[in-house]
Design a protein around this nucleic acid. Structure first.
Length: 187
DNA sequence: CTTTGGATCGTCT
DNA sequence: GACGATCCAAAGG
């Protein structure tokens, strides 16, 4: 959990993210390095918004974007060094009724968590949850291992990250990872 | 099915 | 004052 985001990202696949009655299996992620990655919020140094990315690993970094959406990340480098993994999609595993109520526009269950903004809406996450320790049993949001292993080489997809300006030097890096064939992967 | 444009506001320049 | 680590609806093939 405390190493290079590009190494950690694929290992988070098939882990379970849970918040109260609602939970889902992680099926798509993106790695964001800190100082070496122009696409990272931490590239230009620490600020009030991204402070959690500079804190200890295993904590939740939640940001607000586009004036209406929240996205959540797992911090994964030692305190003082920025780095995180964006959770892009979940396969819903429990609390589906609550998710549907929070996301009335979702017509199919695969629309509930198939995007970083969607899954935060489904889990009810916002900036109030920024900084939570995902590995503490006392936290309202937790990252759990239910025994399913990370995808094998044949089950693991990878490619360029989504929504990154093409002019950035790291835009073409294959730092997006997903579970091949899962219906909840975005797009 | 794919493409396009609008919504909306915290954050940093 | 500009710009997003996005989502959705509407319009066009």
């Amino acid at each position: 959990m405390a190493s290079d985001p590009v190494e950690v990202a694929p290992l988070l696949l098939n882990k379970v993210l849970t918040c109260g009655p609602v939970s889902g299996r992680i099926v798509e992620v993106e790695a964001y390095k800190g100082s070496e990655d122009p696409a990272s919020h931490a590239f230009r140094g620490e600020s009030a918004r991204n402070a959690v990315m500079f804190g200890p690993p295993g904590h939740l970094y939640v940001y607000f974007s586009y004036g209406m959406h929240h996205c959540c990340n797992v911090v994964c480098r030692p305190a003082g060094v920025a780095g995180a993994v964006l959770v892009r999609a979940l396969a819903p595993t429990s609390g589906l009724e609550v998710m549907r109520r929070r996301r009335p526009h979702a017509e199919r269950d695969r629309d509930l968590c198939s995007g970083p903004g969607k899954l935060c809406q489904a889990l009810g996450l916002n900036r109030d949850f920024d900084g939570l320790d995902l590995l503490s049993s006392a936290s309202t949001v937790r990252l759990l291992d239910d025994g399913r292993p990370a995808p094998t080489a044949g089950e693991l997809g990878s490619g360029p990250r989504i929504g990154i300006s093409a002019e950035l030097t790291s835009a073409a890096e294959p730092w997006r990872f997903w579970v091949v064939g899962d219906a909840n992967v975005s797009r």
